[in-house]
Design a protein around this nucleic acid. Structure first.
Length: 977
DNA sequence: AATCCGACATACC
DNA sequence: GGTATGTCGGATT
């Protein structure tokens, strides 16, 4: 059939019966050269007429024509107009598996294609029948049959939102620059945003907001009056602006009609923003963009709260969607049973069964409509917005499926009141309300329902602006009051992303009074040293003990670190994990952090998920019980035999950061001294006390020197000398003079009293190292667990952990897989990198019997196993040293004074650039065969010392080490240390 | 009196 | 300009 023939046959004809619509569609197929349903698919499942028709629905399907994955099509038929036909399609889009295109037609005049992708802005392709001769328009139709993606709008909702939000941020900043307070500005801007959205989705008539702006552009001084009139009309029932009837918007957003005086330029910004189509904006990112634009300084504070949609759904799915879907499956089966009974039975019994089916459906819908989701740190409302959509989707699906079974459907009941929020920042709280409103209205429109009216917005008092942890209760009996634990509204589910703040950063950020009040109130549930998020976990825990069914919170991944662990341990004693991710990267720019996600239920859960894998059980350290035979390694005890052997290095604190130094107008003094200056000091003549500067100028070892190439630093270190003694060393003492100024500006006044000393000089470490010919060092944070030898008088920085032993046996045991596994498991992490924490990794580690660090090395070396370890350790170290500094590429020079480690210098520039790549981190990244063999040999030697087979699995090793720790720890000195 | 951590910091490819 | 990889200060206990 040619387009001309099609036009001749159908133009201006009116549909009389459903058969005419089918004939119209068949002609369309013939014109486009596409297969008809009968030709393509005999089953009619993927492509056919009257899709979803059942006996109970009387032969009417969800759509007149349906092609799975392509489109749903509805003819005007009994509908009054194309809009109603479109709404019908939207309502059943779920039952049609959300086809990308929804097509409506009135047979004789128009075919209209609506795009239906969730993440793209929507677009309408209008094809008048009379213009089917136009190849482009026929192309659109053809694409609907063959390649719907060709019709997908290019712009995503995110891009659209970024564009419009950026313009509003400009306005907000302009108002803030004129001295307006952030809160009224936020309120005002939110109103404007809502007005733009409202007029674009036709909740406001005739683009009245844009019209108002156009008039105000002519006479800017009248903007206040115009906007005030509009806001006033929106606030009241039956309001009008001129002739136009304005719908009633309640909900607090238009409670007053305060309007800022805007300049012409500012009105132009608003006008320009209003030119965009706001109907498709994504409220989930709107908030963040505003926050960023409004106050760039606060970006890290507020913007960082932004959680991307995927992460939020990782919580909403297991916490809300999955349990409620499961409930629905049960109810639906019940309904199916009743309906089957109703269809078989006649008369009273049939009616009764039908009513039972209705009651079952109603019961479920009632349950859904009473379901409440609380986000006690809701920020700009992203979690709430997505939770509301999820609930509405569930309700809608239940309705559509029930209708397919023959039950009448009702208007959706779930609205913004289903979500509850608490947020401290007034600006964010307001955004949360707007996001939830917009989300609700968008959902209704997208699914073919009118927005609820009279009023359009109901008050959203359920998003509260207050502190979620404590509240101040004034006491009238005296002129004061007290802080008490804040109440949380009762909710079925608690979700959210509370602010992350390490315990050490809480006081500076929140004020020490607030923090001490908080600690006092939560003293039983949240241990000192726990991260700020732990308070939310503790409160959610107590809610789960009450009527709350499930919770899911995001936290920093350091939650499983020592102090915060207690909160989790409590939580896991009487609640059940549903899904846990222990270390997820955070995808938002501007925040470099990794997070843990913890979803818990008050009811037992059959197969909890750990990092997307089903496991039998999850421990409070967010590990699966399958490892280490269920042993909880967090219960390991410190061992007395390991005491006083591992130290962190010195903390100089000679300088403050350069920014502060320049702000305070201070020279940036430091204990550190350049290598050139240091050598001058070292060779200088003896001081008045007859001593050389070698007493107090020493090589300084930082962690980087171990994992990467040594940097050859020096430092002035007076140890615990008195000022009188220190001053004898003239050059070094003069060098550190500026330190005194800095100490005066430090928070700890005691730092000044011994200003010439390092803040932590670690005399006990120096004492332990002094008699040794060498000592063992390891970087506190490094990708690989590396142990190296260093010698006196090198002074380790606090980022280096020192083990005061000089024997190869201890070195070998520490560098074996046994200690490495233990350290990995017992230590904490910095982001994704393991961190060696001496108290939990070294202090608790059970060395092989007879080789413990409390035994002098001469004694332990009598042992054959020990000799073997020593040999392997020596070999490993030698090979590595040779690799790091090949003898033909370096020359070794004695230091300017005797007793100092010799200098290792590249012989020429070529050697220098070659040596840059010779770092231990690089070596262990590559793990060449020789290194592997050396470690294998060492591992076998250490295994033999333990008396264990060499091929134990990792979990088995940990389990055995733990058993050994428990045994040693309970040998009458469990209180060791 | 020492520890532990960083909604990070920065060198390097 | 990403990506890889670990500083060093200092509040907290």
């Amino acid at each position: 059939m040619t387009p001309e023939a099609f036009i001749a046959k159908w133009q201006n004809s009116k549909i009389k019966e459903r058969a005419a619509a089918q004939e119209h569609f068949l002609d369309l197929c013939r014109m486009l050269g596409e297969q008809t349903p009968a030709e393509a698919d005999r089953d009619g499942i993927d492509y056919g007429f009257e899709f979803g028709a059942t006996k109970t629905t009387g032969g009417r399907g969800f759509a007149d024509v349906f092609k799975r994955g392509f489109f749903g099509m509805e003819y005007k038929g009994t509908h009054a107009d194309l809009t109603a036909a479109f709404a019908q399609l939207q309502r059943y889009a779920v039952a049609l598996n959300n086809p990308p295109l929804l097509i409506v037609s009135d047979v004789g005049t128009t075919i209209r294609i609506h795009t239906n992708w969730t993440n793209s802005v929507s677009r309408i392709y209008d094809i008048p029948i009379a213009e089917l001769g136009d190849p482009e328009k026929r192309g659109w139709l053809k694409a609907a049959f063959t390649d719907p993606d060709a019709l997908r709008p290019k712009q995503t909702r995110q891009e659209l939102t970024e564009e419009v939000a950026g313009e509003f941020a400009r306005l907000a900043r302009s108002l803030r620059d004129r001295g307006h307070e952030p809160e009224p500005v936020a309120h005002f801007i939110n109103r404007l945003v809502f007005c733009m959205f409202a007029e674009d989705v036709k909740l406001l008539p005739n683009h009245i907001f844009t019209q108002m702006l156009e008039r105000a552009l002519e006479t800017p001084e009248e903007f206040v009056d115009f906007a005030g009139q509009l806001f006033a009309a929106m606030r009241s029932k039956g309001g009008r602006v001129g002739f136009e009837r304005i719908a009633w918007f309640n909900g607090g957003l238009f409670d007053d009609d305060t309007v800022f005086v805007l300049t012409r330029d500012e009105i132009r910004i608003v006008y320009k923003a209003a030119q965009h189509y706001w109907g498709d904006i994504d409220p989930a990112i709107l908030g963040t963009l505003f926050e960023r634009g409004l106050d760039p300084d606060k970006r890290s504070q507020l913007g960082a709260h932004y959680t991307d949609r995927d992460k939020i759904m990782m919580i909403i799915d297991p916490v809300i969607v999955e349990p409620l879907s499961a409930e629905w499956e049960v109810v639906r089966t019940e309904i199916e049973g009743f309906i089957a009974k109703a269809n078989q039975a006649r008369g009273g019994a049939g009616t009764r069964a039908f009513n039972q089916a209705r009651a079952a459906l109603d019961g479920f819908l009632q349950r859904l409509s009473q379901y409440r989701v609380l986000d006690p740190a809701c920020g700009s409302g992203n979690f709430l917005y997505l939770a509301l959509r999820a609930l509405k989707d569930l309700e809608h699906r239940a309705q559509v499926e029930a209708e397919a079974l023959g039950l009448p459907r009702t208007f959706p009941r779930i609205g913004p009141e289903a979500v509850l929020g608490i947020e401290l920042n007034p600006y964010a709280a307001e955004l949360a309300r707007v996001s939830v409103w917009i989300g609700d209205i968008q959902w209704n429109l997208k699914n073919g329902f009118a927005a609820a009216e009279n009023p359009i917005l109901k008050p959203l008092r359920n998003i509260e602006c207050r502190d979620a942890l404590v509240s101040w209760v004034p006491d009238t009996s005296f002129a004061g009051g007290k802080w008490v634990s804040a109440e949380w509204p009762i909710a079925n589910a608690i979700i959210g992303n509370p602010p992350f703040l390490g315990s050490r950063k809480m006081a500076p950020a929140m004020g020490s009074q607030y923090v001490s009040a908080l600690r006092k109130i939560y003293t039983r549930t949240v241990p000192k040293g726990a991260d700020f998020v732990c308070f939310w976990f503790a409160k959610a825990h107590s809610a789960l003990r009450g009527s709350t069914e499930r919770m899911g919170l995001v936290s920093t991944n350091s939650l499983s670190n020592a102090a915060s662990r207690q909160v989790l341990r409590d939580l896991f004693t009487d609640q059940y994990p549903i899904a846990v991710w222990r270390d997820e990267p955070w995808t938002v720019s501007g925040a470099a952090v990794r997070v843990a996600i913890v979803c818990m239920s008050s009811e037992p859960v059959a197969n909890p998920m750990l990092d997307d894998m089903a496991v039998d059980e999850i421990h409070s350290d967010l590990r699966s019980a399958g490892t280490t035979r269920g042993a909880d390694l967090t219960l390991s005890k410190p061992l007395r035999e390991n005491a006083n052997k591992a130290y962190q290095g010195v903390v100089p604190r000679g300088s403050i950061n350069p920014t502060d130094a320049s702000r305070l107008g201070l020279p940036n003094g430091d204990f550190a001294v350049s290598a050139a200056q240091a050598r001058e000091m070292l060779v200088a003549p003896l001081n008045p006390n007859g001593r050389p500067n070698t007493d107090v100028v020493v090589p300084y070892l930082i962690a980087r020197d171990l994992a990467q190439r040594p940097s050859g630093r020096f430092i002035v270190a007076f140890g615990t000398m008195t000022e009188r003694e220190a001053a004898m060393y003239e050059l070094p003492f003069n060098h550190i003079a500026p330190v005194k100024l800095h100490r005066q500006h430090m928070a700890q006044p005691e730092a000044l009293t011994t200003w010439w000393q390092h803040w932590r000089p670690r005399p006990e470490m120096s004492a332990a190292l002094a008699p040794l010919t060498r000592f063992i060092v390891t970087p506190r944070v490094s990708k690989h667990r590396l142990f190296l030898w260093r010698t006196h008088p090198i002074l380790p920085d606090n980022a280096v952990v020192v083990v005061a032993r000089e024997d190869d046996v201890t070195f070998g045991v520490l560098h074996s897989r046994f200690h490495e596994l233990w350290a990995l498991r017992m230590g904490s992490t910095l982001e994704d990198r393991p961190r060696y924490t001496p108290t939990t990794t070294f202090q608790t580690f059970p060395f092989p019997h007879g080789l413990t660090p409390d035994i002098p090395s001469v004694v332990s070396m009598a042992d054959d196993a020990a000799k073997h370890i020593a040999h392997c350790a020596k070999e490993l170290n030698q090979l590595r040293e040779n690799w790091l500094n090949p003898a033909d590429l370096v020359r070794r020079e004695p230091e300017v004074v005797p007793g100092y480690p010799e200098r290792i210098l590249p012989i020429n520039e070529e050697a220098e650039s070659f040596l840059k790549k010779r770092t231990l981190t690089n070596l262990y990244n590559e793990r060449p065969a020789w290194l592997h063999h050396a470690h294998e040999a060492l591992n076998e030697a250490v295994a033999a010392a333990y008396g264990w087979p060499a091929d134990l699995g990792d979990d088995e090793v940990l389990a055995r080490l733990f058993a050994l720790n428990q045994e040693r720890g309970s040998e009458g000195h469990a209180d060791a240390l």
